[in-house]
Design a protein around this nucleic acid. Sequence first.
DNA 1: CCATAATGATTACAAAATGGAACGATTGTC
DNA 2: GACAATCGTTCCATTTTGTAATCATTATGG
Lengths: 173, 173
Amino acid sequence: MERLSIVYHAAMSMSRAHEGTESRGGAAFLLAQLGAHGAQLFAQRIAELDLTPAQAGLLRLLGRSPGRSQRELADQLGMPASRFVPFADKLEERGLIERRRNTSDRRLYALHLTDKGLELLAELRKAGAAHEQEMCQGLTPEEHRQLIDLLGRMARQQQLAPGVHPGYRSIRR
Amino acid sequence: MERLSIVYHAAMSMSRAHEGTESRGGAAFLLAQLGAHGAQLFAQRIAELDLTPAQAGLLRLLGRSPGRSQRELADQLGMPASRFVPFADKLEERGLIERRRNTSDRRLYALHLTDKGLELLAELRKAGAAHEQEMCQGLTPEEHRQLIDLLGRMARQQQLAPGVHPGYRSIRR
DNA sequence: CCATAATGATTACAAAATGGAACGATTGTC
DNA sequence: GACAATCGTTCCATTTTGTAATCATTATGG
């Protein structure tokens, strides 16, 4: 009975519009809806690799640009530096990342992926590809390209850094 | 210096691809990125109306189908019933919603918008329209329609209920 | 070159958010 | 009429969250 209410609600919404033309809201709402839905699916998928979305984000970040400082990485992942420490600790204990002292500035740690971390990153990429497939299975290859083009232009216009997920942190007031 | 690291990172990413063709990830990543970004912008926008995204969701829900029970609404908003109570309390104290006893089944409350709540919902719709404009300002009207069509079909294919935001609740394990 | 400010990593801690369990009131079922 | 189920509610333990303080190191600038 729990999820039934949603189905009921969906039926209500559809009943007052022609099939195939029902209003699903504007692009912004669809973006938020599909983004959140996709994030859920992806989180479930990588849970099989024993990874959270934030952990996956760090691995991907380190895969592209190794040797970053904890502060930089914490900023990009949208978490305070204080929380990054135990966060990185866990991955270090699992032997996925490595803290190396920066010789020129001994305040910083340079984070690197271990071989084991690289292997897991490869698994992660596979999961990402499968996820892309799952999300876009309703589109033709041409439509898929079109969508990526439109979204990419929106992302650029919004000045979003490529590959950097803003996170779903709440707005403090 | 805080946000500079992101700019730096963006520059790094773009430097290894032709301008205008830089990889911003697949559609799924762009969806999550733009969805989260848009959610942030929208949250900031409605903060001026003293509303959180969840509160806005409840008002919109009640605007479309008044008289729902708390349990139903809690389910759709993705929160346990126990948290819905103080959540609804706040909106009731502000005079935006009303709890009416259901005469046929006195276990349920039927939630309704007050006149004040209806007024705020109108403001909310304006904010939503402005938000849509802000997010899609880089697209032509034709592209805008195209995008809504593609996203709408994806949402349907993923069996997402129209107008129901899955929320950003984390996955428990 | 030394005093002082600034920065990175870390720890400590308080505030807030979260979901489950239990409870009373009411309704459906047999 | 006994019993299970449901709704709204309260209570509470756990987790999550961000800020402030701390220590080591590096930059600044007179």
